[in-house]
């Protein structure tokens, strides 16, 4: 039945619910169709990025005199750009650069934001008020604008880009972590724990953290996808990775003058960004489905 009737209160006690052990989170994500596709896409990109590290293919900076703007061939699988550089190698290196910025920025934002959120939610008082005010102010900026202003202030370079993106995302993690902490803090079992004299750190680690990890996990996937888009956008505008270093955003910007004739100069870097964003969003969807007990499979 699609409509759940209330349990038959006095009349009939239903049979005990199935108590099969809950499968682990990774397994539940993989069981979700979206999650599985997302993991496969991101896994493939990560492999390509790692391959670029050991120069399995071509040097992304080498300029081949033989052919500039040459189409895909046996020698250059994805063609070459206006300087005769191998697009495949540049895309792979670009993916590495994107993932590096995304991972570092989101790691920073998750750790700092998550910690601030948990602590301010758990401690309350002045700390909570100050953190709350700060996040309010940061939320007052449109995300892209804030990232841009920070990059303008910090200067170019991948780490500065990562820091700028991290600052933008930190208040989001503060909120995501703080909400469940407040709920958990007021819940029966934490109150009971306090009465029993458990230490604050024990309560924090045993009861509070497990409850905030689920919403944070979902947010991490979405933040990674936003970070990749932002990094590419900043590079596109000339404010991120600087030439001649390979970057997906810069490659797209450069391709403008050669498209649609040399379509490969645009298609492959664009495709890499799209695949990364789609993959991460699918993982986010999968996580949400896996973590939400209310989700009904249709």
């Amino acid at each position: 039945m699609t409509q759940e009737m209330p349990p038959a209160a006095a009349a009939v006690v239903p049979a005990a619910p199935r108590t099969a052990g809950q499968p682990s989170l990774p397994r539940r994500i993989l069981a979700d169709r979206n999650g599985l596709i997302g993991v496969v896409l991101i896994g493939a990109l990560a492999l390509i990025a790692l391959a670029s590290l050991v120069h399995l293919g071509q040097d992304p900076l080498a300029q081949h005199q033989s052919g500039q703007l040459a189409g895909p061939s046996g020698a250059h699988w994805l063609g070459t750009d206006q300087f005769g550089r191998d697009i495949a190698a540049r895309v792979a290196a670009g993916i590495f650069a994107s993932l590096r910025v995304a991972l570092v920025s989101v790691a920073l934002a998750t750790v700092i934001g998550g910690l601030l959120g948990v602590l301010s939610g758990f401690a309350g008082g002045i700390l909570d008020a100050v953190v709350g005010r700060l996040t309010d102010v940061l939320f007052a900026f449109p995300a892209t604008l804030l990232a841009l202003a920070l990059v303008a202030a910090l200067g170019h370079g991948w780490f500065n880009t990562a820091v700028a993106i991290a600052v933008v995302y930190t208040p989001i993690f503060v909120r995501v972590a703080r909400g469940p902490v407040l709920t958990v803090r007021e819940s029966e079992y934490v109150r009971a724990g306090r009465v029993l004299g458990f230490s604050r750190s024990r309560l924090l680690f045993r009861h509070v953290l497990p409850n905030v990890s689920a919403p944070i996990a979902v947010q991490v996937a979405l933040a990674l996808s936003w970070a990749i888009l932002t990094e590419a956008g900043l590079s596109f505008l000339g404010l991120g990775t600087q030439p001649p270093n390979p970057s997906l955003g810069l490659m797209v910007a450069d391709s403008r003058n050669f498209f649609p004739d040399a379509w490969w100069t645009l298609l492959f870097p664009a495709l890499a960004v799209v695949v990364a964003v789609v993959g991460l969003n699918l993982i986010g969807d999968g996580l949400r489905n896996a973590l939400d007990p209310r989700t009904v499979r249709r």
Binding site: M1, A8, V12, P14
Partner: peptide
């Protein structure tokens, strides 16, 4: 009837 007995259907 109990939940699922078909009374609501």
């Amino acid at each position: 009837g109990e939940s699922g007995s078909g009374k609501s259907f």
